[in-house]
Design a protein around this nucleic acid. Structure first.
Length: 700
DNA sequence: TTAGTCCAATTTTTT
DNA sequence: ATTGGACTAA
């Protein structure tokens, strides 16, 4: 397909700053890819002088694939990646200028939180005085704004100096030779600002920089781009202010709204023709978003027929909702749509549970995109820590993680002692481990057998990096210790570890070093790539529908889309309501993003009753859709049936059905009202004690 | 000091 | 429903 005039003008615009305002479905990625092709073919720019930046790994992969299709092998020469991945590659070469060893590693969210907690505990600050999440949030906020501890604003909380804690946190990270995600960006900015020689090197590497999803840049990333492009000014940004949904990560829509002020004389291009959705879907999208102020005024112009009017179904509760979703999906399926062309989107990950239950009951094949990432799984993190040990690139945090897995008689106190001894030795973790003697005193002595085992297997691992791990996990007793969690659980964890070993083998065959693999694990936490690899290996006709959060759906498109839980408290989310008007606007944009994912069919659902943790909620329909006319959004409500949760009539001996546990018989009833509990003997799941209030028990 | 048991608080979205 | 934290027994 050829470019339309607006796309072509943007693709072939000259040097200097270029802003491409691209509405949803207007061929944004297509235009960016064509612009790169144009730079290479017509303007004779060498591919390796071009840098293309995205926000997600998925978008980066997509860009790479399209480049390869369009311009063949030359596409491989273009540098592309996420802000974080590109920053990491810069830092791998130059981190020493900031006082870090070049072999530093990335810390993930879990370890980051644990580190903050230890920091507060060491200072005897209880979580009642200062909640760890609050401190972390404030630090992140500073980092998004590119503020180091010195530059951060004064902040006191119950007499506690937050800046001092921020500085201490940074020091701890440095001591462990780790950077957090935000550090990757911030430290690159520091390289570019504080080290003229390195800045000159980095700036000289590229002649053209292109950025996708520019509306999601935070101030630190904005500064990053400014500094990197200041020599040539050849910065092309593509984005849509209506799709800015990462405000909570520090993204500031003003960067795209005020682009012309920062880059005077910038060319501006508007792509308003939508090639994706039916007219009726776009009408709803426009109706939803036009209530937002502070946006570039634009309209999505349909290029397709009106099509079918979007539908809004009000359901009884989340299970009723799930069943209606399932029946809509089946109807579309009967109309000839494949499962893979459909998606169910939701605001919070928890919403997937009832939907998953119903879908699997009804035999609809689905895939949850995102969820608990492969590399975030406990056993994978453990195995990677062992693996790092084996390859001499383990640090204190790795050791801490597995020092008592399996149990070696090292508890909380021993763990702290270990950390102190290690730190006092002045040695790198892996070297220190080599010095341990059998039968030595204290917790260090208890680690000696492990140290010996690692030393024995290291030679083997060095020859063939994917070898040794399995043996280490076996002989150290780690695999055995997994069994304590139950046979089924242990088996799935074993499978995951096997998958990790396979993955390491593939990566190693590609020539990846251990440090590079750990980088990849850190940046690809979702394991998307891993899943993709395995799917490709399995089969191409793996036809499954996608379940994912609205955030994850950005940039994707499907023939048929269900947006679930379109209710007050969920969309807009309660938390965002507390943030004021800007939070509300962002939630509205989130709905807009969801609507514009759909090509042909769109269903919105909401529930009158929903079980949130701790309470039954009776949410109102979302304010975003409640006033939309019937001609734009058709509404229907399911007929009320008896509320299954009514406690009346539940007696010992009653047969009941539970959505997860199946059928069973009530053994006892205790308490009253909200505190009422029942013991049920389930036929398959055994005896369970359930809070009546939360368990969706149905009498049969 | 450790390990097992019980109890409490906790949930938005992602690199 | 899950998970971390506190308490208690050994």
């Amino acid at each position: 397909m050829q470019l339309n005039p607006a796309q072509q003008e943007a693709a072939e615009a000259g040097d200097g700053a270029q802003l491409i305002l691209a509405g949803a479905g207007s061929g944004k990625t297509r235009t960016i890819v064509h612009r790169i092709a144009h730079l290479i073919a017509e303007r004779r720019v060498a591919p390796h002088r071009i840098l293309a930046v995205t926000f997600t790994n998925k978008a980066a992969a997509e860009l790479k694939a399209r480049l390869n299709t369009l311009i063949g092998d030359d596409g491989g020469g273009v540098t592309s990646g996420t802000f974080h991945a590109i920053s990491l590659s810069f830092l791998r070469r130059h981190a020493d200028a900031l006082g870090y060893p070049k072999s530093f590693q990335v810390i993930d969210a879990d370890d980051q939180k644990a580190l903050i907690k230890r920091l507060l505990k060491a200072r005897n600050i209880s979580s009642d005085t200062l909640h760890p999440g609050y401190l972390l949030g404030w630090i992140e906020h500073c980092k998004h704004a590119a503020l180091t501890p010195d530059a951060a604003p004064e902040q006191n909380w119950s007499g506690i100096d937050m800046r001092e804690l921020y500085a201490a946190y940074q020091q701890e990270l440095m001591r462990h030779e780790r950077m957090d995600f935000s550090d990757l960006i911030l430290n690159c900015v520091r390289l570019l600002e504080e080290h003229k020689d390195i800045a000159a090197l980095l700036c000289a590497r590229f002649d053209h920089v292109l950025v996708d999803e520019y509306q999601d840049t935070n101030p630190a990333q904005h500064r990053w781009l400014q500094l990197l492009c200041r020599g040539h000014g050849n910065l092309t940004v593509v984005g849509d202010d209506d799709q800015s949904i990462y405000g909570w990560r520090g993204a500031d829509v003003r960067h795209i709204l005020e682009f012309e002020n920062v880059w005077p004389g910038a060319g501006i291009h508007r792509l308003e023709h939508n090639y994706r959705s039916t007219g009726a879907i776009l009408e709803l999208a426009n109706a939803v978003i036009e209530s937002n102020s502070e946006r570039h005024i634009k309209q999505l112009r349909p290029t397709r027929d009106a099509g079918e009017t979007p539908f809004w179904r009000v359901c009884q509760d989340e299970y009723d909702e799930a069943r209606h979703i399932a029946s809509a999906l089946r109807r579309w399926r009967q109309q000839g749509k494949s499962w893979r062309s459909m998606a169910v989107l939701y605001r919070t990950a928890r919403q997937s549970l009832p939907i998953e239950q119903v879908l699997s009951e009804e035999g609809v094949p689905y895939r949850v995109v995102g969820g608990v990432g492969f590399f975030e799984r406990m056993e994978i993190k453990d195995a990677l820590a062992y693996w790092a040990l084996l390859h001499h690139c383990a640090d204190g945090l790795h050791l801490r993680r597995i020092c008592n897995k399996p149990k070696r008689g090292i508890g909380a106190v021993g763990e702290q002692q270990l950390a102190d001894i290690l730190s006092a030795s002045g040695l790198r973790t892996a070297d220190w481990l080599d010095t341990l003697q059998d039968g030595g005193p204290g917790p260090a002595g208890k680690l000696a057998p492990l140290a010996r085992l690692v030393a024995e297997l290291r030679a083997e691992a060095m020859q063939q990096p994917d070898m040794g791990l399995g043996e280490l996990l076996e002989k150290s007793g780690y695999l055995e210790s997994l069994k304590a969690m139950g046979e089924i659980e242990a088996e799935s964890r074993r499978d995951n570890i096997q998958a990790l070993q396979d993955y390491i083998a593939i990566a190693t065959a590609e020539g990846m070093t251990p440090i590079e693999f750990l980088d990849r694990a850190a940046l690809l936490q979702s394991g998307e790539r891993l899943a993709a690899d395995r799917q490709a290996a399995a089969s191409d006709d793996d036809d499954a529908l996608s379940l994912m959060s609205l955030h994850r759906a950005k940039g994707l498109e499907f023939d048929c889309v269900v947006l679930s839980g379109v209710e007050e408290g969920l969309l807009p989310h309660q938390r965002s309501l507390d943030e004021g008007p800007s939070g509300l606007s962002e939630e509205r944009r989130l709905l807009y993003v969801g609507i514009t994912r759909a090509r042909d069919h769109l269903l919105l659902t909401s529930a009158r009753m929903r079980r949130a943790f701790g309470d039954l909620m009776f949410p109102q329909p979302s304010r975003f859709i409640v006033n939309i006319p019937e001609s734009v959004l058709m509404r229907s409500e399911t007929v009320s049936t008896a509320i299954p949760n009514d406690s009346g009539g539940l007696e010992i001996g009653c047969s009941v059905r539970h959505p997860t546990f199946g059928e069973g018989v009530i053994l006892s009833v205790e308490g009253a009202g909200d505190a009422m509990r029942v013991s049920v003997n389930f036929r398959k799941a055994g005896i369970k004690r359930l809070m009546l209030k939360y368990a969706a028990l149905e009498m049969i």
